[in-house]
Simulated assay, not measured.
Amino acid sequence: MQEVHAALLGLSHPHSLAHLRTLQAVSEVASITLWDKDEALLQETVRNQGEKISGTTTDLASVLGQQQILFVVAALRNDLGPPIFIRALEAGKHVITDKPIGKTAVESAEVAAAARREQRKLGVFYQNRSLPPIQDARRIVEQGLIGELVSVEMRMVTTQVQVRNPRHWLFNQDKAGGGILSWLGCHYIDQILNITQDEIVSVAAQIATRSGEDIDVEDVAALSLGFASGAVGTFHAGYMLSMSGGGYHNAVGYDTYVSVNGRLGRITYSSNGTPTSIDVESSHPSWASAPRRTFDYTFGSSPAYGGASGEAFLRAFIDACQGKGEPLATGEDAVRVAKIVDAAYESSRSGQRIDI
């Protein structure tokens, strides 16, 4: 892979500095230009995390006009991002954004349409796709080892709103567009679409705000899902853990469980962070000698967001920008997830099942 030049747009997002660490960790990235409206924040970032930073600016047109920049990483508030993403695409830059791209599926689709029109790559940071246990789970499904999909069960609960700064824009409907589903639940919706290669075609949901904090987005949600294959699924998400610390990069701040159930077997995994093992049982003839198996994983060390697999995720996007395949998670993938999240909100409002 040849050396490339990149830009990071936005420094106040909860993940901005983590994305900067990834750009700094990937050896193929030769230089990074920073853009933010806040000059003081730009200078603070250079002082504290200045490796590879070749320049800073508060002028968006200036950074987008730099011909040597192949792609931009964008981490912006949900209500502010889409017009800037479109400007970057129209300036000829490939773009990879933090999820969910926009506040709604319509906004996300407009950005995806701009990428198609400009013939630029649009990626989204659904980084779980580069985790070895998730990739193996997908391969096991593709190999037919659990048979036709029957059902999916998912749980993702994490630390409470009170330790996540309730005054943050993430808990403001006008700025964020939604709560737990659009901020964190989206990762698990994408994860199950990626593993099963099935489509979610209907949603019945109940969402609520139960934290007791002064916020106007949902902090707990329960979804019933219908798949194109006829399979069914459930997903429970919430900010609920009272004894697991706080912060946005808390390695033990989760309680997760996923079960993918088929006619011939199932895949399960659970963790309080990144899954380090998956359990598989299969009655497929090829597994007759050992129908129950556990796959354990160790991950290489890296300062990148998501560790070594986070580096791999960004490298795959850079490859795509250079004409070698597609991003691991595309703008179209983000639109699929956003449609499901929007359907959950509409279902809860209307009391009806929503077909997608």
Rank of each mutant, 00 (worst) to 15 (best):
M1A: 07
V4F: 03
H5M: 03
H5E: 12
A6P: 08
G10A: 08
H13A: 00
S16C: 08
L20T: 02
R21H: 04
Q24H: 01
E28V: 15
T33C: 01
D36T: 03
E44I: 07
V46H: 11
Q49N: 11
Q49H: 09
I53P: 00
S54W: 01
D59K: 01
L60C: 14
G65T: 00
G65N: 04
Q66C: 03
Q66V: 14
A74R: 02
A75Y: 03
D79I: 07
I86F: 02
L89W: 10
K103E: 10
E107I: 00
A109H: 07
A109Q: 09
R117M: 14
E118G: 09
E118V: 06
G123N: 00
G123H: 03
V124N: 03
S130F: 04
L131D: 02
P132Q: 03
P133F: 07
R138G: 01
R139M: 13
V141C: 14
Q143R: 08
Q143T: 15
L145G: 05
I146E: 10
I146S: 08
G147P: 13
V150E: 10
S151W: 14
E153Y: 10
R155Y: 06
M156S: 08
T158G: 15
T159G: 13
T159S: 10
V161S: 04
V161L: 02
V163M: 07
N165L: 02
L170K: 12
F171Y: 09
Q173I: 11
A176G: 09
G177Q: 01
G177H: 06
G177M: 07
G177W: 01
G178H: 02
G179T: 10
L181V: 02
W183G: 11
C186A: 04
H187P: 05
I189G: 04
L193G: 01
I200R: 05
T209C: 13
E213N: 05
D214V: 06
I215C: 00
L223D: 06
L225K: 11
F227K: 09
F227A: 02
G230T: 13
A231D: 05
G233W: 06
T234Y: 11
A237K: 08
Y239K: 04
M240K: 15
M240I: 15
G246P: 00
Y248W: 13
N250T: 09
G253L: 05
D255S: 15
Y257M: 10
V258K: 04
R263T: 10
I267E: 09
I267A: 10
S270D: 02
N272S: 14
G273K: 01
P275M: 05
W287F: 08
S289L: 13
S289M: 07
P291Q: 00
Y297K: 11
F299W: 05
S301A: 15
S301N: 09
S302W: 06
P303W: 07
P303I: 02
Y305C: 14
A308D: 04
E311Y: 00
A312T: 12
L314P: 13
R315F: 03
F317H: 07
D319A: 11
C321G: 11
C321L: 10
E326S: 14
P327F: 00
L328Q: 12
T330W: 13
T330D: 02
G331V: 12
V337G: 01
V337Y: 11
S347P: 01
S347I: 08
